[in-house]
Design a protein around this nucleic acid. Structure first.
Lengths: 114, 114
DNA sequence: ACTTACGGTAAGTTATGGCTAACGGTTAGG
DNA sequence: CCTAACCGTTAGCCATAACTTACCGTAAGT
C-alpha cells in the first residue's frame, strides 16, 4: 500500500506538486515537463522517480520518449489515511468537548461557564 | 485557507506525522509528547509551531502547561485539494484511455493493438 | 518572595534533499 | 552503421530545515 507517509512526503515538495499539476492536464514526456518548469531536465527525472516509487504516476515508453501520467489509484492510500485522520480528530474533539461541558468529578462551580 | 501546499509540506515531515498520530489519541502537553518521541522538547515545540501555523493543531493554556490538540477543520483544505486532484486524475485517465481505444485521426494500423 | 515546573525562542551545528553538470544507454531515422 | 533525439543515473555542490544546547519568561506551589 506504499505507506501513506511516503506519499505525503512526496507531495510535500512544491516542484513535485507542480509536476503533478502539469500531468493533470494530460500525459506528457519528460522534456515537455522540464520545458514548462524552472528546473533542469534531470531534476524532473529525479522527481518523477520519486513520484513513481510511491505510485502517484506511471510511465510508458513511446518511441524514444517516455510519457508520464498520473495514476488515480495512487492517491487512494492518502485519501484513506486522511479519512481515518479526520474521523479520529473529530472523535478526539468530541471527547474533549464533552469533558469540558460535563466535568465528571471535579469542582463543579469553580470557574464560570459564561 | 492556509494554502493546501503548505499543509502538505507540513504533513511531509515524519516527526510531525508522529506528533499528529500521538495527538489523535487525545490532547497532550508538550512535555508529554517529547517524552514519547525520540527528539528533544524544543524540537517538538518547533514542530508544533509549524503545525499550528498551517492550522492542523490548536493549543490551550492549562495552568503551567500548554495542551495541544488536532483541529479537524484544519484538514479541510487538503481534503478539498486531493478531491480535486482525484477527479482531475480520473478525467485525465479517461481521456487517455479513450484516445488509446479510439484513435481519432492518426495512422490507424501503424502499430499493432494487441 | 523564592522555588520549581513547563515551555517558547535564539543561536549554532548537522544532515537531508534538491539542483546542476557530465556521462552513458536506448531508440528511431537516414 | 552512424547520427541525433530523448532520458535515466551519478557525483558533487549548496541551501534549507531539523535538531540540540542554552537562555528567558510565566504560572503555580510553599
Amino acid at each position: 500500500m506504499t505507506n501513506a507517509s511516503a506519499i505525503l512526503a512526496a507531495l510535500g515538495d512544491p516542484t513535485r506538486q507542480a509536476i503533478l499539476d502539469l500531468l493533470l492536464e494530460g500525459p506528457q514526456p519528460v522534456g515537455e515537463l522540464a520545458a514548462l518548469l524552472p528546473v533542469s531536465r534531470p531534476a524532473v527525472s529525479q522527481h518523477l522517480k520519486v513520484l513513481k516509487e510511491v505510485g502517484l504516476v506511471v510511465d510508458r515508453q513511446e518511441g524514444t520518449r517516455r510519457v508520464y501520467r498520473v495514476d488515480p489509484t495512487g492517491l487512494a492510500p492518502v485519501r484513506a489515511y486522511l479519512d481515518r485522520f479526520w474521523t479520529q480528530a473529530v472523535v478526539a474533539f468530541a471527547e474533549y468537548a464533552e469533558e469540558q461541558a460535563d466535568p465528571p468529578s471535579s469542582t463543579e462551580s469553580k470557574e464560570k461557564d459564561r
